[in-house]
Computed example of a mutant assay.
Amino acid sequence: MNATPINFLALDASTEALSLVLNYNGQTFHHFEECPQQHSQKILPLVDELLSKANCRLNDLDVIGFGQGPGSFTGVRISVAIAQGLAYACKLPLVGVSTLQMMAQQTHQQTGDKSVYCAIDARMGEIYFAHYMLNDESLMVLQGEEQVLKPDALILDNPEGTAVGTGWKTYPNALDNYTNITINNAITLPDAGFMVAHIDYAFANQHTVSPAQAQPKYVRDTVTWKKLPGRE
């Protein structure tokens, strides 16, 4: 990990939750709320609020982190676009973190669990799913790939660990055949506060990207999204 604390802003609007965290001069300012369909109205005022609380300007920061999905198609675009705009304005690098990875990191940091199965309700009878395990850097890292699939199509090989996310709340029977997995209902949505370790590692190891290189991670393609009523 980076030995010198870095100054950064991180934000995520990919799901029903809207979350931001600002680390500046050793202080942390955090905001988390569930506010479906209000992200675009709230996110920039919240950025200003956190910067004001910290007596900080954007160009005082070293890097900006953003939730790159998966999640709501519109929400993911908001996360990426806001991060790009802020980074362009101050010529800052970016770090994208998966929403599923945030939940896995939160689970480890709060419970010590080292194997976490994350699922977000993807609508249309599907879930966004991924399995993460702890590495030697105390980071939860992806095993295999992130997927969108029907819960009854989930096949796990000798699984053991903890399950978190709205996917298991919506489909509580999806893990009935896996007795070595325990559902933790306290962690359901991603929180930007748990990007910190990944941003710190990425910045220290020069794994950042320019604003032009920042990419969303939809997992589900845009053609399928357009079939969803009320979604873009």
Rank of each mutant, 00 (worst) to 15 (best):
E232I: 13
M1L: 10
Q68T: 10
A83Q: 12
A17G: 00
Y201H: 12
L58A: 07
S98C: 13
T170A: 08
I155H: 14
G144K: 09
V80Y: 10
V141T: 10
F29D: 05
T188A: 11
C35P: 01
L51C: 02
V164S: 04
G67C: 02
I187F: 07
I43S: 05
G96C: 02
I78R: 08
I78Q: 00
V196K: 15
K53R: 10
Q37E: 15
L11P: 00
Y88T: 06
W225F: 14
C90K: 15
K150I: 09
E49Q: 14
P190R: 08
P190L: 00
L44P: 00
T224G: 11
K53L: 14
P70G: 06
L149M: 15
L175P: 07
C90M: 09
H207R: 15
T28M: 08
K42C: 06
F29A: 05
S40N: 03
A87L: 07
T166C: 00
T188D: 08
L46F: 07
P5G: 00
T182N: 09
K53F: 05
N7T: 09
E33V: 07
A122F: 03
H207M: 15
N25Q: 13
V95T: 06
P70Y: 09
C35W: 10
A83W: 10
E16R: 15
F29G: 02
N59H: 12
M133Y: 11
P36I: 05
P211G: 09
A54D: 02
C90R: 14
